[in-house]
Amino acid sequence: MINVLFVCLGNICRSPMAEAIFQDKVKKSGLDAYLSVDSAGTGNWHIGKRPHEGTVDILEKYQVSHEALLARQVEKKDLKAFDYIIAMDASNLGNLHKLKGQSESGELFRLLDFVPELKTKDVPDPYFTGNFVEVYAMVEKGCANLLTYIKEKESI
């Protein structure tokens, strides 16, 4: 099983959106038996909460399942358990690098590393900007390209 973890700040906007979109793509590709998907936040403010209503609304608009999503905080053990750890922005990535030690095996990326045509490499936080439509488009494209990358790299 290949384990993928999406990480943002509070785990109520960007990373649960990415988890839901990526899981939807995995399922539609028939790869559920090969890929496991989760999300977490670097902060602890929203542990146990459902995604932000803006995230829920945009996922429902595109008919992407979100029922099982609950916020949690990333832990050091996640950095060993997950093969691909995908941060939403440079700050999240920096926090993950601080948490990661020499022995953890997960590869760290930013989601928009997989969308080279975009000028920005950080997914803006719609909790602060309110721009869930723009964020959804960025996350959807990043997830599509990430899935292609993993399929090629892992030969699945």
Rank of each mutant, 00 (worst) to 15 (best):
C8E: 13
L9E: 12
L9I: 10
G10P: 09
N11H: 04
I12S: 05
C13I: 05
R14Q: 08
Q23W: 02
K25C: 01
K25S: 05
K27Y: 03
K27C: 03
A33E: 14
S36I: 06
D38S: 12
T42I: 15
G43K: 01
W45P: 00
H46Q: 12
H46F: 06
K49S: 14
R50H: 09
E53T: 06
V56T: 14
I58D: 06
I58S: 09
L59M: 13
E60T: 05
V64A: 03
H66C: 13
L69T: 04
L70G: 02
Q73T: 09
K80T: 12
A81E: 15
A81S: 12
D83N: 15
D83K: 09
Y84W: 09
I85W: 05
A87M: 07
A90P: 00
N92W: 03
N92R: 07
L93V: 00
H97E: 15
L99F: 10
G101D: 15
Q102D: 13
S103D: 15
S103G: 04
G106F: 04
V115F: 07
L118K: 14
L118G: 03
K121I: 14
D122Y: 04
D122G: 07
V123M: 03
P124K: 02
D125P: 02
D125I: 02
P126N: 08
Y127Q: 10
F128S: 09
T129Q: 11
N131C: 07
F132K: 07
